[in-house]
Amino acid sequence: MNLFRILGDLSHLVSIFILLQKMRSTRSCAGISLRTQILYLMVYCTRYLDIFWTFNASLYNSSMKLVFILSTAYTIYLMRTVYKTALDPQIDTFATYYLVGGAGLLAVLFPYKYTVYEVLWSFSIWLESVAILPQLFMLQRTGEAETITTHYLFALGAYRALYIPNWLYRWFLEGHFDPIATVAGIIQTLLYSDFFYIYYTKVLKGKKFELP
């Protein structure tokens, strides 16, 4: 466990709280992609299957896993009940089956082992790398975002970006290297690069997030 890993996990945790806070404070889920949230729930459910047999291995990991699964399920529940009037299926239209299909194909082609758990783990890693696309696509269609929504996206993107120095650290200092997670994590971070740029040049300078 190194500083980058802890900061990455905290950033992930913070992103979820910001999302819930966004819905609570604006009483709306406008600007949030339900498709992306459903993909994340799929990611957590397929990756954290091991919670049933490694529950006591690391209380830290197990509690984070539970928090990610439950909070994302709760977010989806809120979006589909309390805040459903703000859902806009006309804007949230990214073809998610291609993402699920692509991740499934990569998982079958490159798992570490051919076991159900390892193939699902690999699937979850690839799916996570592209799960933000419906959200970014939606952002592009609306052309602007509430500031709190951009903080959510920044924290969510920063989480995987912080895992990259963590992987480098582990590779050089512990001899641990995880090629699937690393390649997918780099792709995931690259997908955020445009967003990071606009967040840095606009939101951090007190301006509204608007696409050029």
Binding site: S58, M64, K65
Partner: peptide, 10 residues
């Protein structure tokens, strides 16, 4: 270093 079984990251 102790090698953890399975995947030790989130």
């Amino acid at each position: 270093a102790k090698k953890a079984a399975g995947h030790d990251e989130l």
